[in-house]
Amino acid sequence: MSRPIPNSRRTWIVTWAVLCAAGIAATYGLNASSEPPPEKPVSARCAALIDDIEGQLAKNEREGHNDAVVTFSRIRNADEDDCSDALHEHFAGDK
């Protein structure tokens, strides 16, 4: 027959479980009430590229090509910034 757990050990286990539940609830509450992170500034080059893509998408929609695939090819210099993050953040909601 197994030995019963002393009350003090049970108390510690219950206290630990209550504190974990309170921590999870507090974390959930803080995450739900926090403001969304501020948008990162987009460079002028990336903003122009996003505007070009938006214009092409609007043109395709006006022409009735809603299911068309829009592709862009640009040669990038080594000193130019990569706009892939800005493009992904801007168009991620369109999925």
Results as ranks from 00 to 15, higher is better:
Ile5Phe: 03
Glu89Gln: 13
Pro37Ser: 15
Arg74Ile: 12
Phe72Gln: 11
Val69Gln: 09
Val42Lys: 01
Gln56Pro: 00
Val18Asn: 06
Trp12Asp: 15
Tyr28Glu: 15
Glu89Met: 10
Ala21Tyr: 01
Ser2Gly: 08
Met1Asn: 08
Arg3Pro: 01
Asn31Arg: 05
Asp82Ile: 04
Ala17Pro: 00
Ser8Leu: 12
Asp51Ala: 07
Val14Glu: 13
Ala22Asn: 13
Ile53Val: 13
Asn77Gly: 14
Ser33Cys: 07
Arg76Phe: 02
Arg45Ser: 07
Leu30Asp: 06
Lys59Met: 14
Cys46Leu: 05
Leu87Gln: 03
Ala21Ser: 13
Gly64Tyr: 00
Asp85Ile: 07
Val42Glu: 01
Asn60Ala: 08
Ala44Arg: 03
Asp81Leu: 08
Asp52Ser: 13
Ala26Met: 12
Ser43Gln: 09
His88Lys: 14
His88Cys: 15
His90Tyr: 02
Leu57Ala: 06
Thr15Met: 10
Leu49Phe: 01
Glu35Ser: 07
Ala92His: 06
Ser73Val: 10
Glu63Asp: 11
Val69Trp: 02
Asp79Met: 10
Asn31Trp: 01
Thr71Gln: 12
Asp79Ile: 07
Gly55Gln: 11
Gly23Cys: 11
Leu87Ala: 08
Cys46Phe: 00
Ile13Tyr: 00
Tyr28Met: 15
Val70Met: 06
Gly93Leu: 08
Glu61Asn: 06
Glu89Phe: 04
Ala26Phe: 03
Asp94Asn: 09
Ile13Arg: 04
Trp12Arg: 15
Pro41Met: 10
Ser73Leu: 12
Asn7Met: 12
Arg9Val: 12
Arg9Thr: 13
Lys40Thr: 09
Pro6Ser: 13
Arg76Asp: 07
Val42Pro: 00
Ile50Gly: 03
Ser2Arg: 06
Ile5Cys: 10
His90Ala: 08
Arg9Leu: 14
Glu39Tyr: 00
Ala22Ser: 13
Glu39Leu: 07
Cys83Met: 09
